[in-house]
Design a protein around this nucleic acid. Structure first.
Length: 489
RNA sequence: GGCCCUAUCGUCUAGCCUGGUCUAGGACACCAGCUUUUCAAGCUGAGAACCCGGGUUCAAAUCCCGGUAGGGCCA
């Protein structure tokens, strides 16, 4: 059987990081085995499904670079990959099960079921359907329909042990005796998840179902339905879950959960891919940096971890910083631009593309995310800096000492004939030695001159070097900032 | 409550299948040093783990059993 895998997200919210990781692992599995990766949108929940979320899923996967071979956007806008467009198919199989008496109508009300459940639990039993409607006489069923009683369709679950060989966990066994007859549809128009998934996987010839561990208890149910319908069984593999720092399921409470949010904060797709792959998988070597195409070659499902993995944002940050530093400067500038624009720092025509690149070049080692650029570089764009004058002091220098230092810098820089990084640096270094000698400061400590200068130019506790800033600012602006600092004292 | 899954540094993990080479390796984080006007980046180094209890064995992180803990699902 050719390898065909899928992800089947519900469009009831933004593309979740867990779904994205399932997509990644399915994609890698398909690539590795020369198979196909399919995207199928499971919009059975009519109330909560929305078109905009379908779009979000499509956009998110595209941004990550996870391409699907079949699915929305490829076979028409949604093609046959939306469940809401496949209802006649479900109806056909539902009728088949009903005709063969493998499923039946159940007329129990929610209250009745709730009462029974309470009663079972109070007796210390596992709550399950007691089979009240399992063998209703034909007449009663007809009467119920005539009276328009609400019904659901239940699937007869035979008592037996059901085993399957999980791709990741090995043999897993369930006892169906604890399950009870499961509801597979509310009515012909509203089939339910376990049923539609089985029909879709069969119709789409899915060979391997690779999904989150939260689905593991659905697997025996699906296996049973497959048997009843005479379908083949796909192979199953259950991925460990991505956990919040407290080891519970990832939730909003602990920060961003959707791919879009990470994108907006300025994480790069390559960092997110690399990070997600390493959550629950590793190649067994000491390599840690992987591109999507490398992963496609090296991935193997046997090496996927069995236990859940905590989403460690620091590791993502470190990886993201790494990929940011690796980016060609033109590309990085392009990526940072929207953030600078949004912060109102970039006004059209005020700065050349070259200048902008220089600013980003000197800032990039401090960036963890693209959005950091704003905070790191705003002083380059500002007209007038705002900062506490106490920041100008290095090693407890008093105000008059700082003033002397700044005036010295001003003098040196105003005499500069060649405004160029290396030159500025050399001149200031030499000047600083002279200055220390004149003032009786420790010879080697260049901070007496360079710290006040750097603060005058940046207004910040930390920033690139004064040489880099001065070089980018240009002579005129540099001198102006020094004079403004002197005025503060 | 029932069922299922899982268990190596704080975190992600290598090693486990095929016991000895493990005084348990790497990465992130943390700390220190180098570099340095600052913060980063870079380089070097330190600290840090086999859930517990039995058993098998000459030998167990590795095999078996039993606990415990965490998580998922059902409701």
């Amino acid at each position: 059987m050719p390898v065909r895998v899928r992800i089947a997200p519900s469009p009831t919210g933004a593309l979740h990081i867990g779904t994205a990781r399932s997509a990644l692992f399915n994609y890698l599995f398909a690539k590795k085995n020369h198979g196909k990766f399919i995207l199928r949108v499971e919009d059975t929940d009519k109330e909560r499904s929305e078109l905009r979320w379908v779009q979000d899923i499509i956009d998110g996967l595209k941004w990550l670079g996870i391409k699907w071979d079949e699915g929305p956007d490829i076979d028409g806008k949604f093609g046959p990959y939306k469940q809401s467009q496949r209802n006649n198919l479900y109806e056909k199989y539902l009728k088949k099960l009903l005709d063969e008496d493998k499923a039946y109508f159940c007329f129990c009300t929610t209250e009745e079921l709730e009462n029974k459940r309470q009663e079972q639990m109070s007796r210390g039993l596992a709550p399950k359907y007691d089979g009240t409607c399992a063998h209703l006489p034909e007449k009663i069923i007809e009467k119920n329909f005539a009276e328009k009683k609400l019904s659901v369709i239940r699937f007869r679950v035979e008592n037996k042990k059901i085993k399957f060989n999980d791709l990741i966990r090995g043999e897993v066994e369930f006892d169906t005796i604890l399950m009870g007859d499961i509801i597979i549809a509310k009515d012909f128009e509203t089939p339910l998840y376990n049923f539609t998934a089985v029909v879709d996987d069969f119709e789409m010839k899915i060979s391997h179902v690779i999904r989150g561990e939260d689905h593991i208890s659905n697997t025996p149910k699906q296996l049973l339905i497959q048997e009843a319908l005479g379908f083949y069984h796909p192979e199953y593999g259950h991925l460990p879950l991505i956990l919040a720092p407290d080891r519970s399921k990832m939730s909003k409470r602990f920060g961003a959960v959707s791919v879009t949010e990470y994108k907006d904060q300025g994480y790069l797709p390559e960092a997110l891919i690399n990070f997600m792959a390493l959550l629950g998988w590793n190649p067994g070597t000491e390599e840690e940096v992987f591109s999507l195409s490398q992963l496609s070659k090296e991935f193997s499902i046997e090496k996927v971890q069995k236990s859940g993995a905590i989403f460690n944002i620091q590791k993502l940050d470190s990886l993201n910083g790494f990929y940011i530093r690796e980016k060609p400067i033109e590309k990085l500038t392009e990526l940072c631009t929207p953030y600078l624009k949004e912060a109102g720092l970039l006004v059209a025509g005020q700065i050349t593309q070259n200048k902008l690149q220089e600013i980003i070049e000197v800032s990039k080692t401090r960036m963890k995310k693209l959005s950091d650029i704003v905070e790191l570089s705003d002083f380059f764009f500002a007209d007038k800096l705002k900062y506490d004058k106490n920041l100008l002091s290095w090693n407890k220098m008093g105000e008059s000492e700082i003033k002397d230092s700044l005036k010295y810098s001003e003098k040196i820089l105003s005499e500069n004939k060649k405004w160029e990084l290396k030159n500025i640096e050399v001149e200031l270094f030499l000047a600083s030695e002279k200055f220390n000698l004149e003032k009786n400061y420790p010879e080697k400590n260049k901070g007496y001159m360079l710290w006040p200068l750097r603060v005058a130019l940046s207004g910040k506790q930390s920033s690139p070097s004064p040489f880099e800033i001065a070089n980018i600012l240009g002579k005129e602006k540099t001198l102006k900032r020094i004079q403004e600092a002197i005025k503060l004292l």
